[in-house]
Design a protein around this nucleic acid. Structure first.
Lengths: 207, 207
DNA sequence: GTCTATATTACGATAGAC
DNA sequence: GTCTATCGTAATATAGAC
């Protein structure tokens, strides 16, 4: 993705990357041509190949870049110590906010995995697993400390991530609920899932 | 694959449908050509058009057929009366079993929505919403009867369906857990989500 | 850094032979 | 019921001009 020098090419590089993300999200990788991406930013197809060797590399750059950035941001945002319940709440909030802000990249990163070559796919899967492990480590800590009542941390991890990521399939800002309300509600459901139905009990029997 | 001498059109029709499902699931609608589908069952591309008017109709037939069959099977399988908790358990079991048996159609029905024309998409969305409402009606009944402690039935519906459908992204028969174990575990999580952490409490403090 | 032009290949869809 | 042949279009990727 490096393409240096003080050229106007830097602007074009960014524009081409963003156009590709937008078009892939809307129509799918296979349905979008290099011509369309070029046209979207106002250059000809020949210029498109100055920035990425081929279409496969373009997809891999988008997916790999997304996962790398997700992991880097998670690393610098999430606390590594403290009560498991607090760490879980932090993860839920982080995951929702990060994904709701980048619906297109999230969508592509899930939908276009099968259009990666075998090697590229394997590398992305390693990153994906690393992200899942951030959550599973929290669940394991909570289970070990008897804060969480979980039968299988791996299955719960997958269930939670599927549930949380699903938000970005329907979320629109300005919808029926604010992002804060959605976060609060999903946190409540996540707490319930780990056997800490605090909010539910309070709501069910107010004193 | 094999080419039959006096083969009937009915066999070819079924084979072409199944080949399309398999190829679309593996490579995506836009990435698969009518030629490939025909070749997969051993006929030429000209014959492919004897069975479906065009590629868009083929996709719509697959997605529409899947949703219609899902709704029909749900209608004849799920109880419409009884305790909300029992109806919820029945829904969870039905959903998991139906989806785990048809991973390819489930995958396509979610991934290829954007490749439908506007009209076809709208029709599929109606069916999808109708299925979601089967679950939401159960949640509403449980909430009204104070069996479930739910803040927002619509949000909980979407969260549960995302969580349950996610199973088909990783499930392989012969994996670490049996299908029965997976069902039991997901039912436990679903019960927790609606504020009925029965299993978790029993496990946490056995007498 | 971007353009135009082009080589090569493949697509969806149809027509007419058998 | 299926085949072969074909039309018109568009794809990826490259070469060379400016």
């Amino acid at each position: 993705m490096a393409r240096r020098s003080g050229s106007s090419g830097e602007k074009t590089a960014v524009a081409l990357h963003e156009a590709a993300v937008r078009l892939f999200a809307r129509h799918g990788f296979a349905a979008v041509s290099m011509r369309q991406i070029a046209a979207e930013v106002g250059v000809q197809v020949g210029a498109r190949y100055l920035y990425t060797a081929d279409k496969q590399t373009l997809l891999n750059d988008i997916l790999g870049g997304h996962m790398e950035q997700l992991l880097a941001t998670a690393d610098e945002t999430l606390p590594r110590t403290g009560a498991a319940a607090d760490r879980l709440a932090a993860f839920v909030q982080f995951h929702i906010r990060y994904h709701v802000l980048r619906p297109e990249k999230v969508f592509i990163s899930y939908m276009e995995l099968r259009n990666l070559t075998e090697d590229n796919f394997a590398a992305i899967e390693v990153l994906r697993r690393r992200y899942e492990d951030l959550l599973e480590d929290i669940l394991k800590a909570g289970k070990a400390g008897r804060d969480f009542h979980i039968t299988d941390t791996r299955l719960t991890t997958l269930a939670m991530i599927a549930m949380l990521t699903g938000i970005s399939t329907w979320y629109k800002s300005g919808g029926r609920m604010t992002q804060e309300e959605i976060e609060a509600h999903y946190l409540e459901m996540v707490n319930n899932m780990v056997g800490r139905p605090l909010a539910a009990e309070l709501l069910a029997s107010p004193s």
